[in-house]
Amino acid sequence: SHLPHLIAYTIVGTADDLQQVTQSEVIKFSAGGFRDFTRIAASDPTMWRDVFLSNKDAVLDMLQRFSEDLSQLQRAIRWGDGDALYDRFARTRAIRRSIVDQGQDDAAADFGRKHD
């Protein structure tokens, strides 16, 4: 659960940096996907600083794995490997659908799961 926070914080910061450099309104004209994805960047910075520092080794391990996965996607785009991109996107789409099917896309306490 830590990595999405780092990614959201980074994407918002990158968008703002780009906006400053290009003198454009990157964030103002971003679409709903940007808003939805970066929602967690509004989280408490003090708490997340402490969480990241307290879990430094695990966070660094996960960041390394994420960086490797991101590098694979960069290579696929660079080399025009549409099959690799499609396979990754289809796989992760199916995973996302299973998350929703399991009820983990519900804002209710405990994702709306009923307990016996």
Rank of each mutant, 00 (worst) to 15 (best):
R78T: 11
R78I: 11
D116A: 07
E25T: 14
D61M: 02
F34G: 06
A41E: 06
T46H: 15
M47T: 07
Q20T: 11
F37Y: 06
W79Q: 15
D81P: 03
A58H: 06
G32L: 09
A76Q: 09
A41D: 09
M47C: 09
Y9L: 15
G13I: 03
V21E: 10
A41Q: 07
G82W: 06
P45M: 04
D17T: 06
A90C: 01
E25Y: 10
F111Q: 00
T46P: 07
I40V: 13
S67I: 00
D87R: 05
H115L: 12
E25F: 14
L53F: 13
E25W: 12
K56I: 00
S24N: 14
D110H: 06
K28I: 11
Q19C: 10
A31D: 07
H2Q: 06
L3R: 13
D36N: 13
F37L: 05
R35E: 02
I27V: 12
R93V: 04
Q20D: 08
R65I: 03
A94D: 13
H5T: 10
G33D: 01
V59E: 08
R35C: 07
S30F: 04
K114W: 02
D87C: 01
A15G: 03
A31V: 06
S30C: 10
A84L: 06
G13T: 11
D110E: 12
Y9A: 15
A84M: 09
L3D: 03
N55K: 10
R39P: 01
F111P: 01
G112Y: 03
Q20E: 09
G33I: 10
F89N: 03
V21D: 05
Q72D: 12
F111L: 01
I77Y: 15
A109S: 12
V51H: 12
I7Q: 04
D105I: 02
R93I: 06
L70G: 10
L70V: 07
I7N: 03
D83L: 07
A94T: 08
D57G: 06
D44Y: 07
V51I: 15
I99S: 04
I7V: 08
D16L: 05
I95T: 11
N55M: 04
L6V: 08
D106H: 09
D44N: 15
L53K: 10
I77F: 15
G13D: 12
M47Q: 14
R39M: 13
T38P: 01
A8F: 01
F52M: 11
R91I: 02
A42F: 10
A109V: 11
Q104I: 07
N55R: 05
D36P: 10
E68Q: 13
S1V: 15
V59H: 08
T38C: 05
P45S: 00
Y9V: 14
D16R: 05
S67H: 10
R113D: 02
M62L: 01
Q72L: 15
